[in-house]
Design a binder for these strands. Structure first.
Length: 694
DNA sequence: GCGGATCAC
DNA sequence: TATGGTGATCCGC
């Protein structure tokens, strides 16, 4: 099927005006345009029988009401990351709201919105309480954190984020040039992506198909064809590899490159090289890409959205350029801050990253350690500079889930479970994986979700085992939600290991695998020892999309001015408190750091390590695990059962093994003594206030 | 360790 | 008629 034939294909393909749009929607609904007046409030959350009859409740909802936030929510995840064109988002929001109202999906969104509002209330109460206390210590601690983070800032690398423009839609347009100038979307049910013509109407990736049709009645739908997209992605990657052979494919249509070496070798400027790369990609693969150029991955990612489509944007230079750029950035632009966190931050007065500074001392208690460190690191414009092939990241789970028409009744549900188990088995056969923990996920017809999981006595992968072990979980849920009516079922295995021959059985050929931490925690990396994956897992990524947005200038309060201006004048440290000064005086420029050549030698491999606790500890743990894994493999050889492969212990497990306690104790002591007396060679000494992370 | 929630794509 | 699938992380309990 090339496209949907039942869709109207009008000759006039100009976007509708807002009035036309409204009229069009109204016609379909047999009513007059509704968005001229305030729309009705969301359906009552406690009731699942809400009907459009509820319409007449509250006609004057205030802007901050749950209705307004809900509308924003219904706009979909891609909206606020983008912002694009001349589409009137509030009108689009009204149309979506009107079209969604009363549906089960909508009612569930209302329920979630109410929960979130409650949580925000709790955060605000906490904030009010904090403001009555003396928080000077919290501010001081945070300034110490800032100083410590500054210490690790690395501006010497040049990282590029490459993002294909409306990838799936672009690929389809190559095969169907006739769709280039008309609104077109890929995917059914929800839009996986859509072309720029469709975006003019307010269509977005992730939007429900029938909603998109309301916004754009002439929208053309094409079915997904992953084989085609993967082939095209490969063509793009062939070019990227020329610029960084160790580039990182972040998804089907995104990649990170570290082009520092390339630039040195070819004596080129970053902008120039990336222009050339994008040109080569277009010549070779015939699709356009956008790129962001920056000192680290986090900023590069943000930059690649600035001049989309088919453009590039760079933030390079000194620290002040980076900090100034981050300051004005709406928090939602940062990877890891989604709609929910955005609302929580907004509630405490944080709209842009710059807004973080005045309240920095409250963030730890308001949002927890991880989010706190994440925010501070984002505020400073820090991010990872090490880019490595996706194959070096280890997978932690594998699952399969699917949506269907309402399914109820024990027999039907069991049949569904059987099918789900078979689907998962197929993937487990392909990947040669198995798992030791099984999770069953369900979504009720009300869109409420639940998960039940259980550790297994041994790793499984066969459909029959999956079914047998999942059945008790299903019956448990059936009891809880009786009578249970489902719209989705999924199975997922965690604690996974490979079934490949020779992986962990006897040939102890191991290589380090890096674990990606995606959310908070500054995209840190943590190393483990695992089998080298010989084969890339097939990916079924779907493309999200973002479009640049104008950033309004923010007003800076006095305190903020001091920080940023101080940064520029290069002695910003002096404006801060006493404790901070003490820490900050150890901050050196990159050049100074390099010149000093002060490292701590690893007691095991004797290689010089960066002189900070965390890096050093991690490295020692890494070396230790190398030792302990070797021992574990030797032991494991004798203990292995036929046909069942012992999973390689993780670093934590390895450290916890009693056999290794001696060596661990030695190095624990080593590290502790280092902590107290700093016997390790260091001209500069360790920064005060640097927390030890475990 | 489990279950719910959030996030990215 | 009627809003996806895969994988990861974090938090509270």
């Amino acid at each position: 099927m090339a496209h949907r034939d039942d869709l109207p294909f009008v000759q006039d393909l100009r976007p509708l005006s807002k009035e036309q749009l409204a009229a069009s929607i109204a016609r379909q609904r047999g009513r007059k345009p509704t968005f001229a007046k305030p729309p009705p409030p969301p359906a009552a959350v406690s009731s699942t029988t809400t009907t459009p009859a509820d319409d007449k409740q509250d006609e004057n909802a205030p802007p901050g009401s749950s209705q307004s936030t809900l509308k924003k929510q219904l706009l979909g995840p891609s909206l606020l990351k983008s912002g694009q064109d001349n589409v009137d988002q509030s009108k689009v929001a009204e149309i979506i709201y009107e079209a969604s109202k009363g549906s089960k999906y909508f009612i569930n969104e209302s329920r979630k919105d109410v929960e979130l509002t409650k949580r925000i209330d709790r955060i605000l109460k906490k904030k009010a309480a904090l403001e009555k206390q003396d928080t000077s210590k919290d501010f001081k601690k945070t300034d110490e954190l800032i100083a410590a983070l500054e210490l690790d800032r690395d501006l010497s690398q040049i990282v590029v984020h490459v993002d294909c423009d409306a990838f799936y839609a672009s690929v389809e347009e190559l095969d169907h040039p006739e769709f280039k100038k008309v609104p077109m979307a890929v995917g059914k049910g929800v839009l996986t992506t859509c072309n720029y013509e469709a975006r003019k109407f307010g269509c977005r990736s992730g939007m429900a198909g029938h909603i998109a049709l309301k916004l754009c009645p002439q929208l053309i739908f094409l079915p997904l064809n992953f084989t085609k997209y993967n082939a095209k992605a490969k063509e793009v990657r062939e070019i990227l590899a020329r610029y960084d052979p160790r580039f990182e494919a972040a998804s089907c249509d995104e990649a990170y490159l570290n082009i520092t070496k390339y630039l040195e070798k070819h004596n080129m400027g970053a902008e120039e090289a990336v222009e050339q790369m994008r040109k080569e990609v277009f010549e070779h693969a015939k699709i356009t890409v956008s790129a962001g150029i920056a000192p680290n991955a986090r900023i590069a990612k943000i930059c690649s959205n600035k001049n989309k489509p088919n453009g590039q944007f760079s933030i390079l230079g000194d620290r002040s350029a980076v900090v100034a750029f981050m300051r004005a950035l709406p928090v939602r632009k940062v990877n890891g801050i989604g709609r929910v966190f955005e609302r929580e931050l907004e509630a405490v007065g944080i709209k842009t990253l710059g807004d973080i500074y005045p309240v920095r001392g409250l963030l730890l208690k308001l949002f927890g350690q991880k989010a706190y460190e994440f925010l501070m690191s984002a505020f400073l414009g820090l991010g990872r500079t090490e880019i490595r092939p996706a194959e070096e990241y280890i997978r932690k789970s594998i699952g399969s889930e699917s949506t269907f028409r309402d399914c109820e009744g024990t027999n039907n549900l069991r049949e569904r479970l059987r099918k789900t188990a078979e689907d998962l088995e197929a993937d487990l056969v392909k990947t040669e994986l198995q798992g030791r923990t099984l999770a069953l996920k369900i979504k009720l017809y009300t869109y409420e979700e639940a998960i039940r999981q259980k550790p297994l006595p041994y790793p499984i992968w066969k459909a029959s085992d999956l079914y047998d072990y999942a059945l008790p979980l299903l019956t448990k849920l059936e009891e809880e939600y009786k009578p249970m009516k489902l719209r989705l079922m999924g199975l997922r295995l965690t604690n996974i290991s490979t079934r490949k021959k020779g992986a962990a059985g006897g040939n102890n050929f191991f290589k380090p695998i890096v674990i990606k931490k995606r959310k908070f925690g500054e995209e840190e990396e943590e190393e483990k020892w695992e089998e080298w994956p010989e084969e890339e897992f097939q990916k079924y990524d779907e493309t999200g999309f973002q479009i640049p947005q104008e950033e309004e200038d923010i007003e800076r309060d006095e305190e903020e001015m001091m920080y940023f201006d101080g940064l520029k004048s290069d002695d910003f440290l002096a404006v801060e408190g006493e404790g901070v000064e003490a820490v900050l005086e150890t901050v050196k420029s990159e050049e100074e750091k390099k010149e000093e050549e002060v490292y701590w030698p690893c007691p095991i491999c004797n290689q010089p390590q960066m002189p900070d606790d965390r890096t050093f500890n991690d490295h020692v743990d890494y070396c230790l695990s190398k030792q302990t894994i070797r021992e574990a493999v030797r032991l494991g050889d004798e203990e292995n059962e036929e046909g069942r492969v012992t999973p390689v212990p993780t670093r934590a497990e390895a450290s916890a093994s009693p056999e290794k306690s001696t060596i661990n104790a030695i190095f624990k002591e080593y590290r502790q003594s280092g902590n107290q007396k700093n016997p390790l060679p260091s001209k500069r000494g360790r920064p005060k206030g640097k927390r030890r992370k475990t």
